[in-house]
Design a protein around this nucleic acid. Structure first.
Lengths: 342, 342
DNA sequence: TTGAAAGCGCTAACAG
DNA sequence: CTGTTAGCGCTTTCAA
């Protein structure tokens, strides 16, 4: 079907080995021969088979990427960043979507392991043991997830996370200073390592500051879920809302606007990721900057340079915009709340 | 490194051929043997090499997808749809981003051609000739692009487009009936086939109806460009804006809101794609429904069933929401416009 | 029902 | 500098 190196060699009147050398730019070929081979190859529109090459060299020229949900902008922008960094080295990119299912994720790992050189697992839903097992097959880059401290770190594994500590601490402190005492947090996916991190920081900081924290689980961390949460939001419960990501926060904003509730006058809203283009949210959304693009850049670096250090982390910080303001209600509302007309 | 079929065969005490047959579920193996092989394979955590298999069978179990810009939600949702349909058949998915560059796109086609069974080209920036050449290498699915009528249709090429005619005609007619006579269109990428389609329909329909059409080129069809366009928008120029896609329309909406210009009171806005979740746009955006998900479904069907018909098309229609209303200004404003205080 | 052997397209020693 | 040869891991005749 397609042209093979054999046909090129024959047409150029050289051996297959020489053709191979010429094609791969080896300098152990006299220029005249090399030129001839290259010319013939071009004329025949020859493209080397990546399969065959991979079989013999043991390196495929592909990298793999696995996501829990490629529908989520967090991962698409991660993907875009990795692509632009890695694609330039003409490595191929193989992707897979586990749909949040650990079994499917592991099946993808196996399937891909035979056709990529390195595998990036984003927000992996696998167990630590499974991840270590995967690292036994091929070098793994863990993004947005870190193995438990008790796990022995396999040599061919690197991990990079978003360090939400600073950003979330700043967010809560910011709210506290504005007089907020009751905060609702719209949580992320149950199996998610990063959701656990955020929850942990939040719980700790709220505890330290004496801020009342309500954690609300949502189905998927997207606009629609945020809209629903914003619609159901009990205004007596909290004076501020912090969302797992900007999509959810955007949904909350939309719901509150529809309910005629002023943001930030009546309630403050904070998102996470700083993923929205300027001007998209109304009012402009305060957010914890924790870009998946930055995480993607880190992952790409780890993929491209196997010597890079094994642990990376993206710092976070709070970006204050319009959606947060001084708490309008009293600090201790339960005591002073005017009785509801019944 | 990894377990090979040879090790499985040895451990099971059978020949490689028998192991292969057992593993591939051939019925020409006595059940006892088959079981043994399977058990051993599982114990050894054996995963067949896709490379080796592909080399001999000539089929890789992968499909390829090439985009002009994976950053664009139009393509990510296309990708998500294809993935969910195609991924279930455990085919691998290889992606590439041409960054709008035809040369890079063709390089990707070549690179991928040796490791995928079929290739989906979305909004291809290649020439018709290059596309035909690509179809000579492997079966091609052209999405959001159609070869010129004068081109001989290669046998292994199928093409599917979004038929914008109905939707755009309805949009313009809708505006016309509301009294609008001057329309600004925010155009898509220069090299884009679909942008050309939209422009053509618009020009024709506006001509027929006697509607004044201003076409404004924008850099990239995203929110930021829409914001800029909306900021620069000359309100004397038009009473309605139609955008290449919803992202741009969203930007326009944001800009107008920032300028304090009422939509739809002062100006009507229509998007394209119906890609925004309900409630995201404010006011709710009238749009031409032309989902890239539907296009993705069509492409996936073509990929999965080579026998499927070669030409597909996604119908479009107008969805009227809040962002369009009766033109507030007079039909012939130039004559009645109050003089500016200078 | 199983095994031996050929070979997919390519690279990498090893000779010449 | 170039050709010969031996595989990479797998499937698939062809015999037994």
């Amino acid at each position: 079907m397609a042209t093979t190196i054999r046909q090129v060699a024959e047409a150029a009147g050289v051996s297959i080995a020489t053709a191979s050398r010429a094609l791969s730019g080896s300098d152990a070929v006299v220029p005249a021969t090399k030129d001839r081979v290259l010319r013939v190859a071009a004329a025949l529109d020859y493209t080397p088979s990546r399969l065959a090459r991979g079989l013999v060299t043991g390196t495929t020229g592909n990298i793999g990427l696995i996501f829990p949900d490629i529908t989520n902008p967090f991962y698409t922008s991660f993907l875009a960043e990795v692509e632009s960094l890695v694609g330039a080295h003409d490595l191929g990119i193989v992707i897979g979507d586990s749909h949040e299912d650990p079994d499917r994720e592991y099946a993808l790992v196996r399937q891909m392991s035979t056709q990529v050189d390195r595998l990036v697992l984003t927000s992996s839903r696998l167990t630590d043991e499974q991840i270590v097992a995967a690292a036994g097959r091929l070098p793994i880059v863990l993004a947005n997830r870190r193995l438990g401290d008790d796990m022995a770190m396999p040599p061919r594994l690197s991990q990079m996370v978003i360090d939400v500590d600073a950003g979330f601490t700043a967010a809560v402190t910011h709210l506290y200073k504005l007089g907020h005492r009751r905060l609702t947090y719209l949580d992320g996916p149950a199996r998610s390592w990063s959701a656990r991190q955020k929850r942990a920081v939040l719980t700790r900081v709220c505890g330290e500051l004496g801020l009342n924290l309500t954690i609300v689980g949502i189905e998927r961390p997207d606009f629609t879920a945020g809209l629903a949460a914003g619609t159901d939001l009990d205004l007596d419960q909290a004076t501020a809302v912090l969302a797992f990501n900007d999509q959810v926060a955007l949904g909350v904003l939309a719901a509150l606007r529809a309910r005629g509730i002023d943001v930030p006058g009546r309630i403050s809203v904070i998102g996470c990721d700083d993923s929205l283009p300027d001007g998209l949210a109304w009012p402009a959304l305060s957010t914890v900057d924790s870009s998946s693009r930055a995480l993607g850049a880190l992952a790409a670096a780890a993929v491209l340079d196997p010597e890079s250090k094994q642990n990376g982390s993206v710092p976070t910080r709070l970006i204050v915009r319009r959606s947060t303001a001084r708490a309008a209600v009293d600090l201790n509302p339960r005591e002073e709340k005017t009785p509801e007309p019944s």
